[in-house]
Design a protein around this nucleic acid. Structure first.
Lengths: 248, 248
DNA sequence: AAGCCTCTTTGACCCAGATCAAGCGCGAAC
DNA sequence: GTTCGCGCTTGATCTGGGTCAAAGAGGCTT
């Protein structure tokens, strides 16, 4: 198994890239100082498991950079990804000891962790944190429900288009580019991970990506670098009428 | 369209059947009194729509009795149920004007509604409410993710068994009976609603129910009255290893 | 630069579940 | 008591996506 990387230099909340979106978004200077005392950074290599389902977790935290996945596995090995954790997303559940899912780093990953007990205590005393966490949890619930429609009712082609448009829009907002017209990005997931997210096999994922390429909906350079000439076209293929905004 | 029924007699929080499970579970007497001022009851007939997706909602609230569903619909009519609302479950999202889903009463339904604006104000001032809502939202998120595994990876037979065992366990806990051995209950959903929940067609639902009956996993009296001779057997068929507890 | 290893693509075939189509059973309306 | 309508079942057939199998394409190691 891979070794955990130690972070070269711990940094300060004031220049934290996720300062304004994470669970600490609403905190004032005093509260940040308090958080600072219970926080620490951890880094993981791509492919490393952050927590195993069922294992005790003595921390909660935020993704600072990189991407992690939340997956559930059945005894016979069938797996379903139930969440994609992007920078600023929260990991762990206050008031619960074990993790309900496997959390795996898909890319190199940096997390800002809080020791669980002190964090829980602080949540009770600091409405700003509890409020922000509620808001984030409600957003995740909406995203999960949006995904239930994808899993339950969409065709393979629509599923792929849905995933690509989510990534494309997320990337556009992250880089403050307009979320329409031409979008270019790198796929952060392998075909297998995409299959696990979409409830498909990796062969079907591959075939449908080839089909979308053949039909000019996307262009591919290598296996991962994607160009979407017309985001509206892609979103049409996804079957949702413009709305969307799952991981907004 | 059906008419809304007016409730014969509004009742008091102290003898409310969902007092200890709903969003108000942690409230003390003062807080309940405050809530009482902004609350009102509404009743709906089976089949009636409580809110349409996209429509403005000027209230949030709790299901007091009956069952409601949360569904999403695509332009071409494909629909996916994304939530099953049982007594004590919360409806609506503080801080959002419109409903993201259709909310439909599956049975006759009574709701305890709070005017939205005052409720939002009260949430900011009353940690007990925000804390309980966070807890409930986290539970719903877990349930939604559990359901993603069902939708994405389970076979039709496993899907049916999963739904039946959820209903059976919920019913058992609601009536304080042991959640194992023999369980008897009524299906609160039509075959079509089950299909919408499971991402199947109603024909497949019907066939798989017949198959489970033929195999002795369940017994049916009429279309809706179900006897599960051995809950463990049913849960085996659902494919999850004992754990479960989605709507616990 | 040869050999591996992992990720990916593509082909051939198969099957679970969708679709299309009757028909049943039971309560409500006339 | 007959008819209507709705919810449900069952059969026949079709098909999207799964399964099994082979091979290409980079990137790393030695």
């Amino acid at each position: 198994m891979l070794k955990e990387i130690s972070l070269p230099s711990p940094h300060d909340c004031s220049d934290c890239p996720i300062r304004h979106r994470a669970v600490c978004a609403r905190c004032d200077a005093d509260e940040l100082e308090h958080l600072d005392k219970i926080k620490y950074y951890r880094s993981f290599e791509a492919g490393q498991t952050v927590v195993w389902s069922g294992d005790p977790m003595d921390f909660v935290g935020s993704v600072v950079s990189g991407i992690a996945t939340l997956t559930q596995t059945m005894e016979d090995g069938r797996t379903q990804m139930v969440g994609l954790l992007l920078p600023s997303d929260f990991v762990g559940r206050p008031g619960r000891d074990g993790s309900a899912y496997d959390v795996v780093a898909t890319t190199d990953l940096v997390m800002c962790c809080f020791r669980k007990k002190p964090f829980e205590k602080m949540m009770l005393e600091t409405p700003h944190i509890a409020q922000r966490l509620l808001e984030m949890t409600l957003d995740e619930l909406d995203a999960a429900r949006e995904w239930m429609l994808v899993l339950g009712r969409k065709t393979a082609r629509e599923k792929i288009a849905s995933l690509l448009s989510i990534i494309a829009r997320r990337d556009a907002t992250l880089h403050l580019r307009p979320a329409q017209g031409k979008v270019v990005f790198d796929l952060p997931l392998t075909r297998e991970a995409m299959a696990d997210y979409l409830g498909l096999t990796l062969e079907t994922v591959s075939r449908q990506i080839s089909a979308l390429k053949r039909d000019g909906v996307i262009q591919l350079e290598g296996k991962r670098h994607v160009t979407v000439p017309d985001l509206d076209r892609l979103m049409d293929e996804a079957g949702d009428d413009s709305d969307g905004g799952v991981f907004a």
